[in-house]
């Protein structure tokens, strides 16, 4: 299995922490990077020094540049639009879901309330990214 670079964009330190734990425990070879806001994510992506993520997990509700704003920006940027974006939201508000897919989100995942659910998500995403899906090269 190749090592996969995953960029998680979430403004909540607690969510970042739990996601980190979940992926660490999933056992899949995934390097998880974090950005605490949409703007920081763009900075990260456009700076040359960082490893280019192959897939992104983006929180929907964020102050400033929201997850959906970030999604639109990414999908409109020829240099970034091929990165698969999994939206990761605390709600499954119908409007958010449809807006996300309309803007070419690659998946929309509901944030689970409990640890089992979170572990599930980490397992599924880990398996998808490392063994199921073909992802763009760095």
């Amino acid at each position: 299995m190749k090592r996969i670079e995953l960029l998680v964009v979430d403004d909540s330190p607690a969510d970042r922490a739990s996601i980190k734990i979940a992926f660490a425990q999933s056992g899949y070879p995934i390097n998880v990077q974090f950005a605490a806001s949409g703007m920081l994510a763009l900075d990260h992506l456009r700076s040359s020094g960082k490893a280019r993520p192959q897939v992104m997990l983006v929180d929907v509700k964020m102050p400033g540049l929201s997850g959906l704003d970030l999604l639109r920006t990414l999908k409109n940027d020829p240099a970034l639009q091929q990165i698969p974006v999994f939206m990761f939201s605390g709600s499954d508000d119908k409007r958010d879901v449809s807006t996300a897919y309309s803007n070419f989100a690659n998946a929309y995942i509901r944030k689970p309330d409990d640890v089992e659910g979170l572990n599930d998500v980490a397992g599924v995403v880990g398996r998808l990214c490392t063994t199921v899906l073909s992802l763009p090269e760095h």
Partner: peptide, 17 residues
């Protein structure tokens, strides 16, 4: 409801952790 849910989720998850 949205904003309340996130801290609750954290409370729940970190109690488990």
């Amino acid at each position: 409801a949205h904003d309340l849910r996130a801290p609750l989720r954290h409370l729940n998850q970190f109690a488990q952790f």
